[in-house]
Nucleic acid binder design. Structure first.
Lengths: 248, 248
DNA sequence: ATGGCGATTATGTATATACATATTGGAGCG
DNA sequence: CGCTCCAATATGTATATACATAATCGCCAT
């Protein structure tokens, strides 16, 4: 193989041994060769099979366990888990990047900027318990001449002090916040909605036309940072999520 | 601390040392104390700081690197990465579970079942290159008396032979497939759409009403398995995605 | 039969050590 | 001045070993 004289094992590529063990087993599981409930060979058996130390085998199996493909039980061994509830990884790009990927010129335009003491609704949206200053922003993302998305945002000024000095006239609050505020958690809600008159007017579509609403709340170290609604006309936007069980 | 006589290090809980190192560093990064670009202490420094072996430190740092929080460069050290493009983990439950979580009785009803040689459209939806038998299914998921979601599904019979013997009269194809076919990859597309007459009729809503469309393609070991469209009336459904950067 | 208890077993975590590999910084030379 | 090459350094991967811990099996006494 490669490092630290091993015998032969044949077919050595340049990937590490524990990666090879990992993908071998993963393949067996995903191909169905080892059905859910099947007992995976014990560490000492794999040790013999791959002619390596238990630590190496252990590392691979631990990773598979963390990826949720197998379950490990002391004294009993490791077992292929039942198919997990499906989950998908959703990439949420910067809107600028998205627009530019379409080959269209991107532009952001502020519609409204309001600094105020948080209303009850603001606090509920942000998840704040106590009142405090917030910044309410509304803006439009353009793809060429057409409105691409409407953004309605609340920023918790207690958590992001610097924001009150920024006009956000042509720079979108999203990219401004990222890089300035390290965020530790986010929650997204995605649903369909009909455009009301205000939205229809801003996005230049018919009232009642279907829109995709992506709502996001962000926390940094337990403190609410921002709440934002992105409203896309149905035609302009598809969220794509990809998923592969383990982490290759 | 705990295992294998270490000295004191104080404040020992019951978590493992490498977990503690991992969460310490994670905290520093997420709190902003270590900004993007900041060089993390070398392995040998952390070794001294935590009074442990390099392997233990290495394990923690490797995990942080895999989680994308830091970047490791040989000879140079490890650095806090720029804030990544945001990603969310989307849980896609079984519809039955979702309905029952609402406290409503669940029921599935098949509308149509058609076995046929794949049309060009079928192949394009499934991602098939060669023609072959497919099963086209349409069904309704009910929450109580109200339609909750419309399902339009294609199953690649070359990949899931057993499906041609199943009527799918009252059992939804989703739960049937899961547990029978180990899936290795899935792709989701989420968008808003207006209900056409057929959909409006099935879901008992007004034509033109906004709906959430979740489209999923699934592969098992490179072979296309199924393509499915779930169509939810806007009021009945919100997708929720949560995200925390590293993997705790 | 049955209930408890200890031996056995497989995994969990940590150590010290060894060598590989990529990269950087500087010494030496044309 | 610039190029090559080498040594130093930090990470990457693997080994052998040690002891902890949880779960199970089977023995033994009741």
């Amino acid at each position: 193989m490669s490092l630290v004289e091993t015998d032969d094992v044949e077919g050595g590529e340049s990937i590490s041994l524990h990666q090879r063990i990992l993908s071998d087993i993963r393949e067996k599981i995903l191909s169905g060769a080892w059905a859910p409930g099947h007992r995976i060979p014990f560490e000492h058996e794999l040790t013999a099979q791959y002619n390596c130390s238990r630590m190496t085998v252990n590392k691979a199996l631990s990773q598979l366990a963390k990826a949720g493909l197998i379950e490990r039980r002391r004294r009993s061994g490791s077992f292929v888990r039942q198919p997990q509830s499906q989950a998908a990884v959703l990439e949420l790009h910067d809107i600028r990047i998205e627009v530019e990927a379409l080959g269209l010129p991107y532009r952001y335009e502020r519609l409204e900027r309001l600094k105020r003491r948080s209303s009850a609704e603001d606090r509920s949206l942000l998840g704040l318990s106590a009142p405090g200053p917030v910044l309410a922003l509304e803006g439009l993302h353009f793809a060429g001449e057409r409105p691409f998305a409407l953004e309605q945002r609340l920023i918790n000024l207690s958590a992001v002090a610097g924001a009150s000095e920024e006009a956000f006239l042509e720079i979108a609050p999203g990219p401004w916040l990222i890089g300035r505020v390290p965020w530790s958690e986010a929650e997204h809600r995605i649903r369909a909605m009909a455009a009301d008159d205000t939205i229809a007017d801003a996005l230049d579509i018919d009232p009642g036309a279907p829109c995709l609403l992506v709502e996001r709340r962000t926390w940094s170290a337990e403190h609410p940072v921002t709440h934002v609604r992105f409203i896309y006309p149905a035609e302009s936007h598809t969220l794509v999520a990809r998923f592969t069980p383990s982490q290759g």
